[in-house]
């Protein structure tokens, strides 16, 4: 009877501890390199890529090769597909989205334009964005439910524009001494990054600040952020060439990656994006590539 009790206790202990051990080990699984999107297969290396757009439906990556004045597409596995130059018309493209009507919209720094590209019709139309007298300087770009979300670099605010490109609303961070440098749309709102204050700000869908937290202790020069499915905030540090991870409340969890030129290392990274397949994609301006990490 005595042995039976001991055996039962051990069995219960094992049953309880196994899921804990398994979940702990899974959570601690490190990020590892999975694929690289580069320009080699196109016959020309990428020169200072600045943005990545993911088309989940088509299972495609689209990379903005800013220095090469072109857009490149890749398969989900990282295989090169096409180069698109808009017949040499692009001038310093910086970011892009694809809207629900299959138009490609590109932020062109060189023309200070949000340029629409209809690939089938071979039509490239530049649009200089205005809000009354003010000329916007578009920077980062997202599109959702018929609305363009554009960072105006001149103000550090996010402009919400309809498909007619009329500004409907501005989202700004009243508590930031500088402006917003990057943002990501989530189901329940917008997460934004204030570069010089080194602060993450969460807005609701209407642009009201819900919360903010400082990342200054762990980050030197934040340039981009991404949010995982658990609500953890990943902040890309351009100068440290690393990613710092914070829980949804702003508690620092860990940092990973380092400066370098070899596979799995970063040099002047500029944007991070989660893909729908569990990958964390880092656009590296300095190394002319996009590296995809997984765990």
């Amino acid at each position: 009877m005595k042995y039976l009790n001991t055996l039962l206790s051990l069995a219960v202990l094992t049953a309880v501890s196994i899921p804990v051990i398994v979940s702990t080990s899974l959570a601690a699984e490190p990020w590892t390199w999975r694929a690289t999107l580069d320009g080699a297969s196109s016959g020309q290396p990428m020169e200072m890529p600045t943005a990545l757009h993911i088309d989940a439906e088509r299972q495609r990556y689209y990379v903005v090769d800013s220095g090469g004045n072109r857009l490149l597409s890749f398969t989900r596995e990282g295989g090169f597909l096409h180069t698109f130059t808009a017949e040499g018309k692009l001038q310093i493209p910086y970011d892009l989205v694809r809207d629900d009507a299959d138009l490609i919209w590109v932020v062109e720094k060189g023309r200070n334009s949000l340029t629409s590209i209809d690939v089938k019709a071979k039509a490239v139309i530049t649009h200089v964005l205005k809000d009354g007298e003010r000329t916007l300087v578009p920077d980062r770009l997202e599109f959702r439910n018929g609305t363009f979300y554009v960072i105006d670099k001149a103000t550090g605010e996010i402009a919400l524009l309809g498909k007619d490109l009329v500004v409907k609303k501005w989202i700004s961070c009243p508590e930031c001494s500088t402006g917003i440098v990057d943002f990501k749309l989530t189901q329940d709102g917008i997460w934004a990054l204030d570069q010089l204050d080194k602060k993450v700000i969460r807005f609701d869908g209407e642009g009201k600040v819900l919360k903010s937290f400082s990342v200054a202790q762990n980050v030197e020069f934040p340039v981009s952020l991404a949010i995982d499915s658990a609500g953890n905030v990943y902040v890309l540090d351009r100068h440290k060439a690393a990613i710092a991870v914070f829980d949804p409340q702003g508690g620092f969890k860990y940092a990973f990656l380092a400066k370098g030129w070899s596979r799995g290392e970063l040099y002047f990274p500029i944007e991070i994006v989660f893909d729908p397949w569990g990958g964390l994609c880092v656009v590296e301006e300095g190394n002319g590539r996009v590296e995809v990490f997984g765990r």
């Binding site: 720094k109 001149a154 930031c176 001494s177 500088t178």
Partner: peptide, 30 residues
């Protein structure tokens, strides 16, 4: 505003539209 400066300092305006610029911050005049 920034524009009032660029009226005279035209050469600087081109730099503000480069890939990376110091057109930054919330101040009306950068």
């Amino acid at each position: 505003s920034t524009q009032s400066c660029l009226r005279c300092h035209e050469a600087v305006a081109a730099g503000m539209l480069a890939r990376h610029s110091h057109l930054t911050g919330k101040e009306e005049n950068k």
